[in-house]
Design a protein around this nucleic acid. Structure first.
Length: 245
DNA sequence: AATACGCACAACCGCCGCTTC
DNA sequence: GGAAGCGGCGGTTGTGCGTAT
């Protein structure tokens, strides 16, 4: 069952396609009155012929009042790069660290700006080469040293402490504090995961060379892909997702 | 001026995990 | 314990617009 219904189509009784201003109004009014959630009951309560999923998506990605419209700033881009290096395609997790930005927005931004560049720039290639060298050295080093257990536990403890500080600071003082807090976190991750490499967010926001920045990112990849011991610490951090609102 | 291309954005789909009954 | 419903997430697609050729 499918038919035209103004803008969009009617499929199995559900409207699909672009939302109209009237539909937006109805949805906003409903959520203002009843709050978010119970998405599937919205159609019954409001008469909107939209599925719960569609309502939720429209609200989360477009209608929410706290959304930040406009282009991703270079600073936000840096954060996205760093967090993607840490967490991969966990867009919702990344989005939680960028107030006013949605996972959809970040996902789209990543796809158009980074994913499709099949051939990395020379700077990126150099950074990757350096990363590979460091990785090899690290592997050789690992063969000689077996003291992970104790150190790992210590690092995890340290990082959890840092995470607590980050969350408290962020809750109390918002984004600016977050930026400051990210620095010890990322440094700690590098320190725990692999040798070499400088600070991450600082080096980038200070306006140092792009290569340095990419080098830092590769180091973060190292943490997740290679450094097993530190990796576990890193994932422990992921479970304590940053929520900066 | 016409066309091609890339970017930005909105929306849908399928899967998965959690909750409820 | 298991089936059903629901919400959330990541992947993908479609479309409009601006810019380059």
């Amino acid at each position: 069952m499918e038919g035209q219904f103004g803008w969009g189509t009617l499929v199995d009784g559900w409207r699909k396609g672009p939302w109209t201003a009237q539909e937006d109004e109805i949805l906003i009014e409903h959520i203002n009155q009843h709050g978010e959630g119970r998405w599937n009951s919205i159609s019954k309560l409001t008469g909107l012929r939209r599925s719960g999923k569609s309502c939720r998506l429209r609200w989360v990605n477009y209608l929410r009042p706290d959304l930040k419209r406009g282009k991703i700033t270079p600073h936000e881009e840096n954060i996205i790069l760093e967090l993607h290096a840490m967490w991969g395609n966990r867009w919702s997790t990344i989005a939680r660290s960028l107030p006013g930005r949605t996972d959809n927005e970040i996902k789209n931004y990543w796809r158009t700006h980074f994913k499709k560049s099949k051939k990395p720039s020379k700077n990126v290639e150099r950074a990757r080469a350096r990363f590979m060298r460091q990785q090899q050295e690290q592997h050789e080093l690992k063969g000689e040293q077996h003291q992970e257990e104790e150190e790992e536990q210590q690092q995890q403890g340290d990082m959890r402490g840092i995470m607590t500080q980050i969350e408290e600071a962020a809750l109390a003082q918002g984004m600016q504090e977050m930026e400051a807090c990210m620095y010890p976190l990322t440094s700690m991750l590098q320190w725990g995961g692999c040798a070499g490499g400088g600070g991450v967010s600082r080096s980038m926001s200070d306006g140092s060379s792009e290569e340095e920045a990419w080098g830092s990112l590769w180091n973060l990849d190292d943490i997740l892909d290679v450094g097993e011991g530190a990796c576990r610490g890193g994932f422990a951090l992921q479970d304590q997702v940053l929520t900066f609102y």
